[in-house]
Design a binder for these strands. Sequence first.
RNA 1: GGGCGGUUAGCUCAGUUGGUAGAGCGUCGGCUUUACACGCCGAAUGUCGGGGGUUCGAGCCCCUCACCGCCCACCA
Length: 939
Amino acid sequence: MTDSLDRPFAPAEIESACYQLWEDQRVFHPQGGNSTYCIMLPPPNVTGTLHMGHAFQDTLMDILTRRARMQGKQTLWQPGTDHAGIATQMLVERRLEAQGEKRHQLGRSAFLEKVWQWKEESGGHISRQMRRLGASCDWSRERFTLDEGLSHAVTEVFVRLHEEGLIYRGKRLVNWDPVLQTAVSDLEVVSSEEGGKLWHIRYTLTDGSGSLVVATTRPETLLGDVAVAVHPEDERYQALIGKTLRLPITGREIPIIADDYVEVEFGSGCVKITPAHDFNDYQVGQRHHLPLLNIFTSDARIRDEIEVVSGSIGDTQIPEELRGLDRYASRKRLLALLEVEGSLVQTDEHRLMIPRGDRSQAVIEPYLTDQWYVRVGPLAEAATEVVRAGKIRFVPENWTRTYYDWMERIEDWCISRQLWWGHQIPAWYGPDGNIFVTRTEEEAQHAAAAHYGMPVVLERDADVLDTWFSSALWPFTTLGWPEQTPDLREFYPTSVLVTGFDIIFFWVARMIMMGQHFTGQVPFREVYVHGLILDGEGQKMSKSKGNVLDPIDLIDGIDGEALVAKRTQGLMQPQMAEKITKATRKDFPNGIPAFGTDALRFSFASIATQGRDLRFDLKRVEGNRNFCNKIWNAARFALMQIPEDADLHGARELLPPERWIIGRLQEAEASVNDAIEQYRFADAAHALYQFFWNDYCDWYIELSKTVLRPESSFSAAEIRGSRYTLLAVLEAALRLAHPFMPFLTETLWQRVAERLGKEGKTIALTAYPVADLQRVDQEADADLAWLMAFVGALRSVRGEMDIAPSRELPVLLQGGKDSDRERLERLSVWLRSLARMGEVEWLAAKAEGPPAALQLLGELRILVPLAGLIDVDAEYQRLSKEEARLQGEQDKVQKRLAQPSFRERAPAEVVAKEEARVQELTNALQELAEQRRRLDALR
RNA sequence: GGGCGGUUAGCUCAGUUGGUAGAGCGUCGGCUUUACACGCCGAAUGUCGGGGGUUCGAGCCCCUCACCGCCCACCA
């Protein structure tokens, strides 16, 4: 540990030493306790780097984890990383391409070797960054979705689901990414409105009696048309249903069918039906037993010949000039042909939803392929039920509805991907295509031998599983499943899942389905759904916008040009670089100062409200860095006040300030605990901030100076009480703050605890404070409220009248109760030091005092004589303003009281309160008016 | 088309059973007061998006409108 506190707060100096201490002491290993607490880290991409969203989420998890650990629970925060199939494979492919190599030239095993190599190189990065954040994961248990144990579990799950008929293989339309050349799930497709056209194309009736016009946004699929559909009740086309049309270009004959999928109002009310290239048309095709004609290759080019997947047609020829053309080139060409033919009757601008792959951004093509699916119906039902039954609670609760809605409409999950990086599907094919799904190749061989009556050569399915398949198992596979390990027994179901709403469907729902199915228990009891971190302008942070902040830069600081370089390097659109450079130089002319981890963490906690979007403002971090500094200096002060040889454990007597601050501490403890329990991190942070800065520093430290100063007239027991309280309250506050600011609190605690003679190697394993509200002392609270109001009154006079702080204020008192006199006796020593109150004199009740500034403290009149001190005009104005304010309030209250219905219906205590208030206001107004008259005479 | 959020001080946002509107930042004035100028003291600032309703009483409950944002959805 760094030793000297004789310097300003310097986070960089303390952070690494603290983390070292925690790891050396094995602080993060589960230990002790009769109850358990467990959080699963949502596994980040193994080759990724920490972004603001991670840092935010990790901070919240760490707060929960550290508090639970300090509460003495056996606590595990399980870390690990995800192989992130598509993302990682794309990245490695891009790197290879930069070196002039291609995935397919390398071949599967050589390519995979390259990916593993990349994983080894960049794999530890994100966990090192998490350590910088202070994350208290048990790193000795770190897992990776592709490591041996987890892969084994994935196979086990696949095989079991297959045996139960919940996994099947089928040929149907999938979302096909023609760039990545793989199927993706519904969730990986993001549709957004884009500009396009609506083409109107004429199809002529084969009997020569006329024609129809169909409207389409995808003319290039025309070659795959198998029918034209109209609405069954559409009067315009009644007579045509059942007739046939001639497809433009090729002249193939197709029927006119009736299906109520067609919207009468849209376009011409006629829809071309292309079952192999459109999800709706597929349904229509199924209903009407139409052929399935595939016209595209896997990279979305026109085939050389139509592939008849089912049904039959006469001619499968494709015009030579279209063959091999990309879908957009073929669209252009085909439109030209239609134009020539005279079939293109109209072209309209049209906005439509374009589906794109969330990784590649390629336009997704509905494409007929063989894929593996999870039959989610039964799983979803069970997963809905556990939420309904309250076994899983969403926080905030309104996400429950989103969850239900999705679960009700969920479709089977396409889990196979035509990638190489991932868990290869444990399925083997016999020579005749028979499928053997087994745990190992040997088992498949046995099964095949039994099936065919002789050994055969099997071919393994080349596909891998969707990354989210293994992620769905994360809560139990990381704990050793399928083995019934002690960890699994101890920590499963886990306590809470902390996650963003963007992956409720991808991940949360699937974990619930799989967890419930395979363990018979929910994977977690609560789901805390947090908001999304946006930049200061409310924009989503993204590399392409150039507004990304790196959490590590906020901790260590970064100079302006380095930040510019970082933001403009490796852009997908290099032309943005100039704009980003300009904006960055404007927003961060001096770069970013080093705020330290604790300030960053505290900032994350303080913006963690229940909203959906959370703007991240650097000013806030700066403010919290100042808070860290405040704590640092307060601790320095406390330690400085207490001589090395001071005996803190002799007889102690507690003065009102001590009794008061102890009470405030209890209330702060209650607020913080209560807030964390409800996942109200911002409230918890606020309570801490408020207590430490406003109560402890602004008032208590200042009050203690009076007792602890060298010429103090307080007794030894009182001084000891004050010294002890100063340190003990600080020590408790450090423990209370530790989950939020682990580094700062650890460093200071080492020194404070030593001085207090407290045992323990680290604050991380001390007891988390629990409020004892019995210790809130009503009398002390009343004393301090009086004292603070008195000090406030004098400071207000001083501030508004511009009286130098060095100048003592003489005070005249008048009126008031016995308690005011009694308190003045006991508390004036603090009034003198905090407000620099000078001579005090009591005036007789009716006596006419000298011209003075007036402040009211209940029935007590506090007068600061004007002679030589006060500007009469200024005080006159101040009084007038104050009068106006009170008058306004009095009017409001009186109006309320004047209503008979208020007296009749409002609770008696509310009425009494209002009456007391109006009385008080009336008195005050009288006093002020009188005082103003007196001053008026002097002007 | 359906659903969910949001609209409160110059800015960013709190406001949990309906009972006298708050914080941080910023602004203005003063201050080398024996931890901290990353500080201290004082001050200013809101028709709580519009309209209607319930209620003795509404920022909070109900209805409605407007604007902003997000998610879901098969009008080719």
